[in-house]
Amino acid sequence: MRFVIIGSGRVGLRTARVLRDEGHEVTLVEIDDDRAERAREADFQVVEGDGSREEVLERAGVVDADALGALTSDLNVNFAACSIAKHHGLRTVLRVDEDYREEVYQQYADQVDEVVYPERLGAIGAKNALLGGSVRAIADIAQNLQVVLMTVTDDSPMHGYSIEEVALPGQARVLAFGKADRPMGIPVTDDSLETGDRLAVLADFEVLGEVRQLIVGENSVAAAAGGA
């Protein structure tokens, strides 16, 4: 797909890299000379100029692009860029600068398909790193539904059993499984659970405690509930 990213700072440039790594075509729009130069050195196509101006976005190819990410630290620029992109029929993503604005733009901004607040994602990562332990939240799917990565410990009551034998509560599913030090994959029912193995589980908040006791064991760090 073709993407236009406004802003080649920490958020914009990293997003552009990830998209390029996955084989997509990315054009960056950057107003600052030094940042534009840095993005060019990283072999990106860069249009220098103000991302809130239509002619600049046209030079960046907004007319034929699939989606636009307005990822600068300036909310006025980001909103203007999304408005122009929406006019051209693109999918739009807006970066907000403060957490309370996430819900305001989700609710009111018709020009914006998705809102991102990068600090929230950073905070979830930092929280997981600080808590350590055998349970980490990966994603909030819905208000009461979370994907959690759990590591089997010596205390786990299911230690030595196969995935098929683990009787999880009704509102929980094993999504992925990985042996210790091996990549995660789709679970096979006769995989057996040993210390250090990891399970990604989709679970309702109500049964998270129960799932944790089954997979991790009684003395696990209670770290799952709530995002950031």
């Binding site: 300036d74 909310l75 909103f79 604005r101 733009y105």
Partner: peptide
């Protein structure tokens, strides 16, 4: 009016 940008 609720507005977009650096004021709300």
């Amino acid at each position: 009016s609720i507005v977009a940008g650096d004021v709300d």
